[in-house]
């Protein structure tokens, strides 16, 4: 890679795009995909399933044992529920990923924003996982492992078919561009 010491990281993106196979990285902007809405539904459902019984239990127990004034603590889980509801929505909207010619991009987070790039050649293992509740909602999660344990490239909710397609494509590309350590 020829590079002037003066310009450190300005023009390189275009240079790399030029020597990549044509067609795949024609547009410098990656094609972002967002996660299915059922992931948001699942997370909200979990929130409700946890918070409502908690509120009921707190209200009943404290109301009966410590006096009606204490039952006001039941408002705490409800407040958490009301606060968490839109937060989950924002978090869900922030998740997105893009497959580029040579690497996978994952973006997430609202307050703590994180963007991860994993070159396909570095991939050691692709894992698709789906719990009973996730299956019910037609979801699967996909995780990429590289030789670095710190690499945290997980997509928590995907359509199972999309997860499988992505898995196959990633392993295929990983083999083609294998680089190891």
């Amino acid at each position: 890679m020829t590079q002037q010491p003066g310009d450190r990281y300005g023009t390189e993106g275009s240079a790399a795009a030029a020597d990549a196979p044509p067609g795949e990285t024609a547009s410098p902007e990656p094609v972002w995909r967002s996660l299915p809405r059922s992931m948001l539904t699942l997370r909200r459902l979990l929130l409700v399933v946890w918070m409502v019984p908690l509120a009921v239990a707190a209200g009943l127990l404290l109301g009966l044992l410590a006096g009606p004034a204490w039952a006001a603590f039941a408002a705490l889980p409800l407040a958490l529920l009301l606060w968490g509801w839109p937060l989950l929505g924002r978090n869900w909207r922030s998740w997105r990923y893009a497959e580029r010619a040579d690497d996978l991009l994952i973006q997430r987070g609202v307050l703590w924003r994180e963007e991860t790039i994993v070159p396909y050649g570095r991939m050691q293992l692709v894992e698709v996982e789906s719990g009973p509740l996730q299956r019910k909602f037609g979801l699967a999660s996909l995780q990429l492992h590289t030789a670095a344990a710190a690499t945290d490239a997980t997509i928590p909710g995907l359509d199972p078919r999309e997860a499988e397609r992505l898995r196959d494509r990633l392993t295929e590309l990983g083999e083609a561009r294998s680089a190891g350590l």
């Binding site: 307050l111 703590w112 924003r113 994180e114 963007e115 991860t116 790039i117 994993v118 070159p119 570095r122 590289t146 030789a147 670095a148 344990a149 710190a150 690499t151 945290d152 490239a153 350590l181």
Partner: peptide, 30 residues
Amino acid sequence: KVQSVRLTQGPWERRNGVADVHVETGANTT
């Protein structure tokens, strides 16, 4: 030797218009 690259930005960092770039290697060092 770079295995993956990551950009992180907390709320306070965003307010000040800065961000961190992490580079991970195969020896489990970031």
